[in-house]
Design a protein around this nucleic acid. Structure first.
Lengths: 167, 167
DNA sequence: TAATCCGATTTCATTTTGCAACCGGTTTTT
DNA sequence: AAAAACCGGTTGCAAAATGAAATCGGATTA
């Protein structure tokens, strides 16, 4: 028997699940970067997450029902991580955090263009993105619009513009 | 010389500032509970924050510009903590986190009624609350509507209803 | 057959957390 | 005037979390 929770406040309970420096980073990479395998999450992570931390966070997110884990049929050793509906519905939280960070913290242009689009797109764009995530992660029908592609293309455009400026 | 940031991503930078189990709890208590003094934040905190943790978080939030600290003219030893505009604009983040936590985590009715009202009130209610916070913390003119009172009265009603049920 | 890739685990040093006791000074109560 | 309560913290210490680097046994690819 251990104490279950510090309090029944929704803010507190959310912090108990996601209140650390890495959990939301992992979910972000799955959601916006479409990383589905351990190695992808490890090697392509912008902040340099360590493998033991990643393993621990995946385990926790799994236990909390934010993600699921399945065997990859194409590779006996590969695991595919997917967002649950609970995880997908973190999108509005990301949108708000992204908007706040973009306004108040020293973000870089390339890494904040997605947050800018998501803020300007509003709840309608969030809903479209969540539909897409349900298709990718939960097997729902694929919507025509791909918000993920829109976000990625905008990111790529910034990166290319900056490469041209330097080179 | 130390590495300044893990990356320029707005999500990451926000987590570097607020990504732990206590920082947002402190801001929440200032914002929704109107706690302005160290002892209030310490003694009335629902989750039982320790005094050294509270002191550390206040110091960090101060350094990050989320709150300010001033002497209390009525008591030579008292300090008054206030939210900055940067802190006040965390309200939409709280609204979204609260909505997510309320939907997916084992919240209690009393401690989640505020989140429910804030979710149903939408951006218009958030704006009204932020105006009130600017009055209380930044000396802006006092608006007629008091969202804080609305939230507190709803909370009190739930507590009283439950006391009646038990007694 | 050799190299690479797979999701982790292990080891160990450092940092953070949490609890409890305590501090010097101020204000209030008796 | 003396005692009690209150003020914003600090200190000491044990336990837990974090982070970097090396490593693991098995699976797949070249």
């Amino acid at each position: 028997m251990e104490e279950p929770h510090r309090s029944g406040c929704p803010i507190n309970l959310t912090l108990e699940v996601l209140g650390d420096r890495w959990s939301l980073i992992v979910v972000r990479d799955m959601m916006f970067g479409n990383r589905r395998h351990f190695r992808e999450l490890l090697m392509q992570n912008e902040e340099g997450i360590a493998s033991n931390i990643l393993a621990d966070r995946l385990k926790r997110l799994l236990a909390e029902g934010v993600i699921t884990r399945a065997d990859d049929p194409t590779h006996r050793q590969k695991a595919i991580y997917s967002l649950t509906e609970k995880g997908i519905e973190l999108l509005p939280v990301f949108a708000m955090i992204g908007a706040w960070g973009r306004k108040w913290l020293p973000v870089t242009e390339a890494l904040s263009i997605r947050a800018e689009l998501l803020e300007k797109g509003g709840p309608q764009m969030w809903a479209a993105f969540m539909e897409e995530l349900r298709a990718d992660h939960l097997g729902a029908p694929k919507p025509a619009r791909s918000v993920r592609r829109e976000l990625f293309e905008a990111y790529r455009a910034v990166v290319e513009k900056q490469a041209a400026e330097v080179g």
